[in-house]
Amino acid sequence: MLSIRPSTKKPSSPSSSASCSLNLLPCRIAQTGPCDASSKHWIVETDGKAQQTAYFRGRKLVSSPLVLPSTHTGAVLDITQDILPTSNSDGRQRGLDEDDDFEQDADLPVEVKAVDELARFDQISVWGHEVMVNKMEDVVIKGVEEWVSVSGRMNSWEGE
Results as ranks from 00 to 15, higher is better:
34 P>N: 11
135 K>G: 08
141 I>G: 03
145 E>S: 12
107 D>G: 08
123 Q>M: 15
110 V>K: 13
117 E>C: 14
141 I>C: 03
108 L>F: 04
41 H>S: 13
30 A>L: 10
43 I>C: 09
122 D>S: 15
58 G>E: 06
109 P>E: 13
117 E>W: 07
65 P>Q: 02
34 P>R: 06
153 R>Q: 14
58 G>W: 01
49 K>D: 15
61 L>H: 03
147 W>F: 12
59 R>W: 01
145 E>A: 08
16 S>T: 15
68 L>F: 07
56 F>P: 04
16 S>N: 10
57 R>D: 03
23 N>G: 05
17 S>I: 09
94 R>G: 10
51 Q>E: 14
133 V>H: 01
110 V>N: 03
70 S>N: 13
24 L>N: 09
17 S>T: 14
44 V>D: 06
95 G>T: 13
86 T>R: 07
37 A>Q: 07
128 G>N: 03
90 D>V: 09
150 V>N: 08
38 S>T: 14
155 N>P: 02
25 L>H: 02
106 A>D: 15
125 S>W: 09
121 F>A: 00
27 C>K: 02
45 E>A: 13
146 E>M: 15
29 I>G: 07
141 I>V: 11
136 M>F: 10
78 D>T: 06
119 A>E: 01
36 D>C: 00
29 I>R: 00
118 L>T: 05
73 T>H: 04
101 D>E: 08
136 M>R: 14
42 W>N: 03
126 V>K: 01
73 T>P: 06
87 S>W: 07
33 G>D: 08
127 W>H: 05
122 D>C: 10
154 M>T: 12
40 K>R: 09
26 P>Y: 03
138 D>Q: 01
79 I>H: 11
67 V>W: 00
69 P>W: 06
125 S>L: 11
81 Q>H: 13
24 L>V: 15
31 Q>S: 10
83 I>P: 01
51 Q>W: 04
64 S>A: 07
44 V>Y: 05
17 S>H: 11
112 V>Q: 05
56 F>Q: 00
151 S>A: 15
115 V>H: 04
124 I>Y: 00
63 S>P: 03
41 H>P: 04
150 V>W: 06
60 K>D: 02
15 S>V: 09
16 S>C: 09
93 Q>D: 05
132 M>N: 13
158 E>Q: 12
100 D>A: 14
150 V>Y: 07
25 L>C: 00
17 S>K: 15
69 P>S: 12
115 V>M: 00
15 S>N: 08
132 M>F: 02
65 P>I: 01
60 K>W: 03
54 A>S: 13
124 I>Q: 02
107 D>H: 09
126 V>E: 04
37 A>W: 13
156 S>W: 01
144 V>N: 04
104 Q>R: 11
